[in-house]
Amino acid sequence: MPVLAGAEPFAHQGSDEVGVLLCHGFTGSPQSMRPWGEHLAAEGFTVSCPRLPGHGTTWQEMNRTRWPEWYGRVEEEFLGLTRRCASVFVFGLSMGGTLTLRLAQRHGAAVAGIALVNPSVTSLRREMVVLPVLSRLVPSVAPIGGAIAKPGVRELAYPRTPLRALASLRELWGLVRADLDRVTQPLALFHSVVDSVVEPVNSRIVLDGVRSTDVTEVVLPNSDHVATLDHDAPTIFAGSVEFVRRVHRERLGEPA
């Protein structure tokens, strides 16, 4: 299946001290993470952003994939980074945040720290209640991608939302919420004041549920859901670099 131009995965080989895995969102692609990845690479970190199965091609193909395939791809990349780097951090946007939390739950201290941008772990939309049935009757609905406040900036995302894939994401949400207390790693959470895709309750559920003692919460006042491409992107980029450098020093026992 041909990959859309701009949706390709990317990687940068930098320091063997710090590696960062970037996880993009539902119906999106690595394009939404590329500026963040370029910033991290310029700081000397090793960076990897895989393209999740079913993403960056067609929504019809995505409807044939399920969350274990998406998780399996990021886990494979994570394990590869652990073989090359002393400290491996995982950063995720939206559903990428869901996958990041699952990695943290499953791999414990092997994950040095996590950064989440508008992570999703639930939805308050009424139609989500009937999604398991609806997804067997209707293949897709209107798109959810492209929620960016900054004029002239576009996310490369599908023109339709594949419902069978969305139903699978809903299953992953339940697993991640149930295991939030297994997340103990240092956490940086960036969330938008106005998010037209993921309700604010998602970030509150995460913050209330994890057992991390090192938690940094950053509110993004000028961005919509895809904040990595929006007005507050520089805040995310700079804050995540500061977070990585501090946590890595602490892991090495070095003074702040």
Score class of each variant (00 low, 15 high):
Met1Cys: 12
Pro2Tyr: 01
Ala5Cys: 13
Ala7Arg: 03
Glu8Thr: 11
Phe10Glu: 11
Ala11Thr: 14
Ala11Arg: 15
His12Ser: 13
Gln13Leu: 11
Ser15Pro: 05
Ser15Met: 01
Ser15Leu: 04
Asp16Arg: 13
Glu17Met: 10
Val18Asp: 03
Val18Gln: 00
Gly19Thr: 10
Val20Lys: 00
Leu22Tyr: 03
Gly25Asp: 01
Phe26Tyr: 14
Thr27Gly: 08
Met33Ser: 07
Met33Ala: 08
Glu38Gly: 09
Leu40Trp: 11
Ala41Tyr: 03
Ala41Gln: 01
Ala42Met: 12
Phe45Tyr: 14
Thr46Gln: 04
Leu52Cys: 05
Gly54Met: 01
Gly54Asp: 04
Thr57Asn: 10
Thr58Ser: 15
Thr58Asn: 14
Glu61Phe: 08
Asn63Val: 00
Trp67His: 11
Pro68Asp: 10
Pro68Glu: 09
Glu69Cys: 06
Trp70Met: 00
Tyr71Gln: 05
Tyr71Met: 07
Tyr71Cys: 07
Gly72Cys: 10
Gly72Ile: 04
Glu75Val: 04
Glu75Trp: 03
Glu75Lys: 13
Glu76Arg: 11
Glu77Pro: 02
Leu79Asp: 09
Thr82Ser: 02
Arg83Phe: 01
Cys85Arg: 08
Ala86Pro: 00
Val90Tyr: 06
Ser94His: 05
Leu99Asn: 04
Ala104Thr: 01
His107Arg: 14
Val111Ala: 01
Ala112Tyr: 05
Leu116His: 07
Asn118Leu: 08
Thr122Ile: 12
Ser123Ile: 13
Leu124Tyr: 12
Arg126Lys: 13
Met128Thr: 13
Met128Leu: 08
Val130Trp: 14
Val141Ser: 15
Val141Thr: 15
Val141Asp: 14
Ile144Met: 08
Gly145Arg: 06
Lys150Asn: 11
Lys150Asp: 05
Pro151Cys: 14
Gly152Tyr: 13
Arg154Tyr: 13
Glu155Asp: 14
Arg160Asn: 15
Thr161Asn: 09
Leu163Pro: 09
Ala165Phe: 04
Ala165Trp: 01
Ala167Tyr: 09
Ser168Met: 11
Glu171Pro: 06
Glu171His: 10
Glu171Thr: 15
Leu172Ile: 05
Gly174Trp: 07
Val176Cys: 04
Arg177His: 02
Arg177Cys: 08
Ala178Cys: 07
Asp179Thr: 11
Asp179Lys: 12
Pro186Val: 03
Pro186Asn: 00
Leu187Met: 13
Leu187Ile: 08
Ala188Cys: 09
Ser192Val: 07
Val194Thr: 12
Ser196Lys: 10
Val198Gly: 02
Asn202Pro: 06
Arg204Gln: 15
Arg204Lys: 12
Val206Tyr: 02
Leu207Arg: 13
Asp208Val: 08
Gly209Arg: 03
Ser212Asn: 04
Thr213Lys: 15
Val215Met: 12
Thr216Cys: 10
Glu217Trp: 11
Pro221Leu: 08
Ser223Ala: 11
Asp224Ala: 15
Ala227His: 04
Leu229Ser: 03
Asp230Asn: 02
Asp232Gly: 07
Asp232His: 05
Ala233Phe: 01
Ala233Trp: 00
Ala233Leu: 06
Phe237Lys: 10
Ala238Met: 02
Gly239His: 06
Glu242Ile: 12
Phe243Ser: 04
Val244Glu: 07
Val244Gly: 09
Arg246Trp: 07
Val247Tyr: 00
Glu250Ala: 14
Glu250Met: 12
Pro255Cys: 07
Ala256Arg: 12
